[in-house]
Computed example of a mutant assay.
Amino acid sequence: MYLSRIQINPARRGGRKLLGSPQAMHAAVLASFPQDDAERGRVLWRVDQDAHRSRLYVVSRPAPDFAHIVEQAGWQTTQDTWAVRPYGTLLDRLRPGQTWRFRLTANPSRTHEGKRLGHVTVSQQQEWFLSRTKGWGFTVPEHDGVPDVVVHDRRTDRFRRGAGTVTIAKASFDGVLNITDVDALRAALVAGLGPAKGYGCGLLTLAPQGRP
């Protein structure tokens, strides 16, 4: 398994296309692997954006080759175009009782009469997340009764697929977690959390306490 990071240049036309279209980004990510679906397995990705940079994170079984993304949408003049690291190093470090900072972009939603409906309020999205953490192998500590998680970057993506329109409610979650079940957390880190994994949801990343 590998955890990869690549910088996307929003000043370039190709960068704007990828950042503005989950379908285009999904296709670009999958094009980074020559393997067929069975050999490649599940690929998770997430875009983190702030005022200064846009980064694409990818978790995959085989190592990716992002040369085509750099050529069309990356920063060709910098050395730090992309980085690929073995994911097992992190997975092997996890132990019950450890505390980590986390980030997740997810599709908080429910199924009603066969249709997936997105949660739209902050309280709904936070409850969706907190009600599932035990199954994902961790808890979120509270301070004065308030969970240590912030819901931000809430948005709705809409795009055409075939003859229909796909609507995905997204929210990002930043906070602190305590590991309760290492095997469950490792499975969540590898397989992803929640629905819409093909469109930039479900990739949970961890960082040591104190590191941004």
Rank of each mutant, 00 (worst) to 15 (best):
M1G: 12
M1W: 09
L3A: 13
L3W: 09
L3E: 13
R5A: 11
I6H: 03
Q7D: 00
N9S: 00
P10K: 00
R13I: 11
G15N: 05
G15E: 03
R16Q: 14
R16I: 06
L19Y: 06
L19F: 08
S21L: 09
A24N: 04
M25K: 05
A27F: 08
A28V: 10
V29Q: 06
V29N: 05
L30S: 00
A31I: 03
F33H: 01
P34S: 02
P34F: 03
Q35W: 07
D37A: 15
A38F: 11
E39Q: 15
E39V: 14
G41Y: 04
L44D: 07
L44Y: 07
V47A: 01
D48S: 14
A51I: 10
H52R: 14
R55S: 03
R55M: 04
Y57A: 06
V58N: 06
V59C: 13
V59I: 12
R61F: 08
R61T: 14
A63Q: 11
D65L: 00
D65F: 02
F66A: 01
F66R: 01
H68S: 12
V70E: 02
A73P: 09
G74P: 03
W75T: 02
Q76V: 15
Q76Y: 02
T78C: 06
D80L: 11
D80K: 12
W82V: 00
A83S: 12
R85M: 14
G88Q: 15
T89R: 12
D92Q: 15
R93T: 15
L94M: 01
L94D: 03
L94C: 04
R95W: 06
Q98P: 05
T99N: 03
W100C: 05
F102R: 05
R103E: 06
R103L: 04
L104M: 06
T105F: 01
A106H: 01
N107C: 15
P108S: 11
S109N: 10
H112T: 15
G114V: 10
G114H: 10
R116M: 13
R116E: 14
L117I: 15
L117S: 02
G118F: 01
V122E: 15
V122A: 15
Q124N: 09
Q125F: 08
E127Q: 15
E127I: 05
F129S: 03
R132N: 09
R132K: 13
G137F: 08
F138Q: 04
T139G: 12
V140S: 01
P141F: 02
E142C: 11
H143D: 11
D144I: 07
D144W: 12
V146L: 12
P147T: 05
D148G: 01
D148S: 10
D153E: 14
R155Q: 14
T156D: 06
T156H: 00
R158P: 00
R158Q: 15
F159E: 09
R160A: 11
G164K: 07
T165Q: 13
T167W: 00
K170S: 03
V176L: 12
N178M: 08
T180Q: 10
D181T: 04
V182Q: 07
D183T: 14
D183N: 09
D183K: 12
A184D: 05
R186F: 00
L189T: 10
L189A: 05
L189G: 06
L189C: 08
L189E: 09
P195R: 12
G198T: 08
G198P: 07
G198D: 08
G198M: 06
C201D: 10
C201K: 07
C201F: 07
L204N: 07
L206C: 04
P208K: 08
Q209F: 08
P212F: 04
